[in-house]
Amino acid sequence: MRFDNLYLAGIGSALPGTVTTSEAVSRGLYDPADREMSGMLGVMVAGETPAVDLAAEAGNIAIKRSGHEPGDFVALLHSGSYHQGPDGWSAPHYVLRNTVDRPITALEVRQGCLGMLSGLQIAAGLLTNRSHAGLPDVEGDAGLSDTGADAVLLTAGDNYGGPLVDRWNASRMFLLADGGAAVVASRRGGFAKVLAAGAVSNPAMEELHRGGETLFPPDLSRGLNFEERTAWWRARWAEGVAPPMGHLGELVAEVAERTLEEAGSSIDRVKRVCHVGFTEGPLTAIYLDPLGVDAAKGTWELTRTTGHAGAGDPFIGLEWLWTRGDVEPGDHVLLIGTAPGMEAACAVVEITERST
């Protein structure tokens, strides 16, 4: 979908210190052969800092950079790929309380590693609907203007340091990293204009991340281990039961081509690609090769030192590029990711301001 009046007004991240992969090998946490094959140098580890505090920290940085005041916000959209806190409790409202702290709606976008990219499309709908509502600009019962709210805060945060997750071995496709990210979507202007965003899925592949686990009652004691589910499907295949067929790279190529066309851009026009923090082989097979780009055009230089920080990866990459001056006004940047489902999503933005 193409947008005419959607901007990124501020961006921020909360990046904990890293544990190097060589240290993880020396401590017996990570297999040396896996390390060699992964190409990874380090992973962010936040210790006992809650995921929502990482999200709030990033959110406050993004708000400060955006120039928006708390009263400008119509909603907060929060994402996390792993547990955020107690069952029956609202992580989005915790982040809201510790950032904007206004009586606006706070929602959780449960879209795995696509949470922020999916949230951007939801934010576009919220802001577009308000701009075309034709409502008088008056104060409502909650003390908020019906049409004066021009911004949505998107946040993400994860901490995989709990006892049920082995960040080093949960998947050979990535090493799970802790971290927070945030961006302010605005209809007033910003450092980047969102030209288009889109998503495409192959729901027939949803079984791949379910494996043999029961749907009810959910077994929360098993933790997050994608390798176990992959092994389950290998065993079924050996028994003659083929797993669902499909390739994430095909979804990546399809959504990128479609969205770039809607944006009036092309992969050759794109200066940089902000992708998720996969290990070298899967990153190449699922993202770089299908897009027809090399690692230097992506953010591999960064992600190989941080790991896979859930939904925040593309926006952590964008902040890194922008604050370093690696992208300048007029440059097009592609933000892209994937999530269980299977689904791929992306956004095309044009840089409009230099970082100060």
Rank of each mutant, 00 (worst) to 15 (best):
Y82A: 06
A33N: 12
T128D: 11
W168R: 07
L154E: 01
W168E: 03
R222A: 14
K271L: 08
V252H: 02
A347K: 00
G307M: 03
E254D: 15
G307D: 00
G179D: 01
N5D: 13
F315S: 02
V293P: 05
L8N: 03
L175N: 06
E48L: 11
G249M: 08
G162T: 12
H332S: 07
K297A: 09
S118G: 10
V25R: 06
N129W: 03
D158F: 02
G341H: 09
W320Q: 04
A58I: 02
G249I: 13
G190P: 04
G140F: 06
T259F: 07
L126F: 13
W233V: 12
R304Y: 11
G212A: 13
M40W: 01
E213K: 14
G17M: 11
D87A: 13
L291I: 14
S266Q: 11
A91T: 03
A46T: 09
Q84I: 03
G157Q: 02
H332D: 13
G12A: 03
S131V: 04
D34Q: 15
V45R: 10
D219N: 15
E57H: 03
P290G: 08
A256H: 07
N129H: 10
S22H: 12
E57G: 09
W233K: 12
D146I: 05
G59C: 04
N129M: 11
D72P: 02
A345P: 00
E227L: 05
F216P: 04
E23F: 04
A204S: 15
P243A: 12
T356H: 08
G143V: 10
A231N: 15
A142R: 15
M40C: 05
A170M: 13
E261P: 01
W237S: 15
L6W: 01
G119H: 02
T214D: 13
A242K: 15
S81Q: 10
L248M: 14
I61H: 02
S131C: 09
H209L: 13
R236K: 15
R229D: 05
L135F: 11
G119K: 00
L220C: 13
E213W: 09
E206P: 10
G298F: 03
R97E: 05
